[in-house]
Design a protein around this nucleic acid. Structure first.
Lengths: 254, 254
DNA sequence: AGCGGTATTTGTCGCAGCGCAAATTAATCC
DNA sequence: GGATTAATTTGCGCTGCGACAAATACCGCT
């Protein structure tokens, strides 16, 4: 699935400015956790209800506070989920990788999206009307079970973030943040593990609760130490292990 | 007041060292969200599977990392949920009020509890074997739905905390923390809203990611301003509104 | 009442890291 | 290719608040 260049992007209703893509195939979703094990007929039913959209880099898939009309599956690309405070500060809640569900407000009993979802690169998503959520969950128990696990995992993750924010200082938090991205979406290169979507110092700052200045300083220092290698909107973790130690390295369970 | 739990229970593991209380009555749980709307027979079934325990102040209902054998309902008292870092620092994840479920690791697909639950005062809890979770959820859809909502709400709450920790400074965080407690478990007195369980400066610090010293200074200053009134393990919010303003007051949605 | 332990208060000091500002580099657009 | 814009780097001063320390208040217990 290849995304065409950024040429034909037409201005559409703000938050859903994508265009339909080609034919939907069962194989697109058959292997993804939420739909794994569903029989072909079920997959066809699910796909039949979906709209497929292309979302240009930096466009919103949905916006915070907006009525939650749909839920989504990211087929290709990377999405960042951002919360904005009343006074305009932004916090990146998490990054979504392909195969993951997003915008599942209805699963949580919300009428509006609690955050915005912004395409970090050109993306392809499937969208379903929110009312189908309960339909899917009851009709396909594995779907319900999987999303339960997803929400659980995200709750865990959020608590981990709270603990980190409470107990670690900036250097460790940034190290943790980078390692998380590297594990989650890292792509092995000969230099090390490359975070394979454009990410700015500002983004990293918004993930870790600091400023782009401090992030820049840290990356510079780490680069001098050979821990990472970074450029404009690009970070490669060269020595994950040493970075891990710096993050306050602790083996999983003592 | 020693009555035996149903189906010959074995001696409880250390962290569950409570004693069984008297007769269980349907009315105990009939009105609680997870069980609301269940018919009498169902309630009896649910209660029949439950063991009821008393937990002394400062005792653990379950401990972080421990195998998640049970899930619980808090019938009476207040519980704090605490995460401990490998180097021994503690963070209070949330307080549980009566009527709430806790220790629902199995709902999230976890084999071990991700945090410890400590009785803030003497408590009474119901305990069910973890394997009954899926049983209850499928047999009583409203139970499943309610807990979905619960988990969703907690996810929201955790994200809110992350945002606060990222964007606010200590004074605002502490103010927010107190207001949250006051709303959640506050008891109106003539002085103001009293947080009706013992809470130390240290506890507040662990909720808000600061130190007891800073919390003490803030409370002193606020007390001088007439915003709060506090003593040993006790806080009363005298002027919620002004405290709210101090917290960076913003009306819900602009 | 007196004792010992715990919670709280308050002072002083130092520094991590934020805010501000300006220079530098790297992409994009004609 | 040169101009424009966005991202990054780096210096510098300031301060919120954490670390350390010591005194005091308050509780439960014998």
């Amino acid at each position: 699935m290849r995304s065409v260049g950024p040429d034909g992007t037409v201005p559409l209703p703000a938050s859903l400015s994508g265009e339909a893509v080609t034919q939907l195939d069962r194989s697109l979703i058959a292997e993804l956790p939420p739909f794994q094990g569903l029989e072909p007929a079920a997959l066809d039913h699910v796909l039949g209800e979906a709209r497929s959209l292309r979302v240009a880099k930096d466009a919103a898939i949905f916006e915070q506070e907006e009525e939650a009309k749909n839920f989504f599956l990211l087929l290709d690309g990377h999405v960042r989920v951002v919360k904005t405070t009343p006074d305009g500060q932004q916090v990146i809640v998490r990054y979504i990788s392909c195969g993951e569900l997003l915008g599942i407000a209805q699963a949580l009993g919300l009428k509006a999206y609690p955050a915005s979802a912004i395409a970090a690169v050109d993306c392809v998503v499937l969208a379903w009307p929110g009312r189908l959520w309960s339909d899917f969950s009851t009709r396909y128990p594995s779907f319900g079970a999987d999303t339960y696990r997803t929400v659980g995992a995200r709750l865990q993750e959020a608590h981990t973030r709270v603990v980190e924010m409470s107990t670690e200082q900036v250097e460790q938090r940034v190290a943790h943040g980078l390692l998380r991205l590297a594990n989650q979406t890292g792509k092995k290169t000969q230099e090390g593990v490359l975070i394979d979507f454009p990410i700015s110092r500002q983004d990293i700052a918004e993930m870790t609760g600091t400023t782009l200045h401090t992030v820049s300083r840290l990356l510079s220092a780490w680069e001098a130490d050979g821990l990472v290698r970074s450029g404009r909107q690009k970070v490669t973790v060269v020595e994950p292990h040493r970075l891990f130690l710096l993050a306050g390295g602790r083996a999983r369970k003592g």
